[in-house]
Design a protein around this nucleic acid. Structure first.
Ligand SMILES: [Mn+2]
Ligand SMILES: [Mn+2]
Ligand SMILES: [Mn+2]
Ligand SMILES: [Mn+2]
Lengths: 219, 219
DNA sequence: CAAATTTGTTAGAATGGTCTAACAATGTAA
DNA sequence: TTACATTGTTAGACCATTCTAACAAATTTG
């Protein structure tokens, strides 16, 4: 069975994988905040366990088995976040650190009960999909707000970044998942957008913010 | 900050302490299922951290600081057990193993919310007292059922043993905390007691069972 | 008390996870 | 295409946690 440390490596590999499912050692090391030799030696041991495919100087890929373990940890992480928000009344900006720990708890029934109490949710509090109990994940395809056009009505569906700072920024603007926005205008010089939504007749959002907001376009 | 391993050692020391607050190394090792040299070396390192007082060949005692850390882990353990039973609908026989893991989560707010959702409980699902947030514990003084006399009416208040097997035995007899028992008789040969309670007009309990049941005597 | 048993200690080793220093391979740009 | 920068590897070390083997101190028992 994978240790917490190994689980974190598998999760990072899963999250960092590009379209070809490949990850560089340097990204992996950076994402886990360990030195490259540390990541290197762990990768070799993950290979021995059959969870990672590795050849000297080549990019890393997860095996089928490795991917499944990673997806199930992510499932526990996202279920936990949802539980903290919906059942225990945490703010969406407070849950990640706790979930980072609870995802390593070995107690199937604990997570089954969460799932059940939550009514089998498919997305976490930040709009990211929750893998199913077999580790299958249904990718959701939303549009970055930055790609939307003036005149469109959209609904906030997910985030590409869930840092505490960004979530606190959204809180300060009363923006949350489900918020419906009307796009009033877009400044072509700096890509700033002006939007309106409940109790906010005119709010200006920077390009940086618009890129991180994923929306569903309403007709 | 204490590691999970260290926390488990402190917790065992706390639970094993006799009236003088002393614990032998061999008990400690046995309770944690490690070899004596392992326990010995850990004890030395706990001493270095200022949590244990240790002199060669002498019994171990926790320092004030060590006791507090232990009590706060026990608080997290018992709050978790209560949460699992009351909020997540676990049986009292299913919670210990999960709590053994969750007690090591570092997330004050997580446990504060549990406490709040539970209405600030003072005992866990097995009747053991929950230390307060400062680590102060109010010992409850109940009587073992084995000391009760025929003719008395008592109420099941706590257990001296909470093994899964014992809890399942109690489940099989519909005995739970709060159950009111009338003591019908006690066999002086083998200390077996015959009791009656809701839907159980006459149930025979072995000495072993009676010693493990703590009761409040009703007038 | 002396012998036997139990309890505690030391030494030495293994594993998992981490580091720094040194160097090698690969990729990019002059 | 050679030089520079980036990326990856190896070697060697450290700390935490665990073990077994050997021995020593303390306690119990005949
Ligand atoms: Mn998260
Ligand atoms: Mn984690
Ligand atoms: Mn317990
Ligand atoms: Mn524990």
């Amino acid at each position: 069975m994978a240790s917490s440390t190994e689980e974190n490596y598998l999760k990072s590999l899963y999250n960092l994988a590009n379209a070809e499912g490949e990850v560089n050692l340097s990204e992996l090391a950076a994402s886990l905040q360990v030195s490259m030799p540390t990541a290197n030696s762990m990768v070799k041991s993950l290979q021995k366990s059959g969870w990672v495919m590795y050849e000297k100087y080549k990019p890393l890929t997860l095996t089928k088995e490795g991917k499944k373990i990673a997806a199930l940890i992510i499932r526990k992480h996202r279920l936990t976040e949802m539980f903290l928000v919906k059942v225990m009344n945490f703010g969406w900006e407070e849950v990640h650190e706790v979930a980072e720990q609870i995802e390593h708890i070995h107690a199937p029934k604990f997570f089954e009960r969460m799932d059940q109490m939550l009514g089998f949710p498919t997305v976490d509090p930040h709009g990211s999909p929750i893998p199913d109990p077999q580790g299958k994940i249904t990718p959701l395809s939303y549009t970055p707000l930055s790609h939307a056009k003036p005149g469109q009505n959209v609904q906030l569906a997910a985030l590409t970044n869930s840092s505490t700072e960004f979530l606190e920024f959204l809180n300060s603007r009363n923006l949350s998942l489900g918020t419906q926005l009307s796009i009033l205008s877009k400044e072509s010089y700096d890509q700033t957008m002006v939007v309106s939504y409940a109790h906010h007749p005119s709010e200006t959002l920077s390009e940086k913010v618009c890129e991180r907001l994923l929306v569903r376009v309403l007709e």
